[in-house]
Nucleic acid binder design. Structure first.
Length: 206
DNA sequence: CGTCCAGGTCTAC
DNA sequence: GGTAGACCTGGACGC
């Protein structure tokens, strides 16, 4: 789930020359992913356009549905719309989640094939994700970050103002943020994220 | 009690 | 291709 097999050496080689990210070379940058891509896709949709309390409510309901574990696609596919609406309180997301589950269950959609090392490049993976209902630029970048595909920046209502605050910039649009990390290439998204969360990891010996 | 909006996305111009 | 409006929900906030 931490993808400890992924080699972040190319990223650290770049970060070592960056005063703002040199702190990461001790081994920072491991995301905690879910056991399946399906689970990360569903959870990520549950983070969109709602407060964190809503995400907790929806995901908690899903885990309860799964009897304490995250439910598999066949379970979600077989669960009626009324459950998504009345129990999970997922609102308009319910039909999205169920549609994805149905396509995974019947084999039309193979989300696990999006894992690294399965001969799909990042652009191809992004295309698959963006075609899913409820997955837009933010959610695709977020899922890809968890997959160890770090090229895209996760841009949302938290990261955008966070970036502006840390850089003391009044205005910074999406393109300018991407430009600022472009030299990190395939690791631009990881560099962006670690830049934003540096103060989460500060310790006494820094 | 009405409005706004939170770790956005979709549809219709 | 770029952009308003709508969209479930439920806290926060102003009145």
């Amino acid at each position: 789930m931490f993808r400890l097999g992924d080699d972040l050496a190319p990223f650290y080689a770049l970060a070592a020359g960056d005063p703002l990210l040199r702190w990461t070379v001790c081994g920072a940058g491991r995301m905690l992913a879910s056991p399946s891509v399906f689970e990360d896709v569903v959870k990520t949709i549950c983070t969109t356009n709602c407060a964190w309390s809503g995400t907790v409510r929806m995901v908690s309901a899903l885990v309860e549905l799964g009897g304490g574990a995250f439910p598999d696609a066949s379970t979600l596919s077989a669960t009626p719309d009324s459950w998504y609406r009345d129990v999970a309180r997922a609102g308009y997301r319910g039909p999205y989640l169920r549609a994805i589950a149905r396509n995974v269950e019947d084999g039309a959609l193979d989300l696990e094939a999006l894992l690294p090392g399965r001969d799909l490049d990042d652009d191809a993976v992004a295309e698959v994700l963006l075609a899913l209902p409820g997955i837009g630029p933010y959610a695709a970048a977020h899922v890809m970050q968890l997959l160890g595909r770090h090229g895209r920046l996760v841009l949302d209502s938290w990261t955008r103002p966070r970036y502006r605050r840390l850089t003391k910039k009044k205005r910074a649009n999406d393109a300018s943020m991407a430009r600022a990390f472009k030299h990190y290439g395939a690791y631009a998204g990881l560099a962006f994220w670690l830049f934003l969360v540096k103060d989460w990891t500060e310790s006494d010996d820094d």
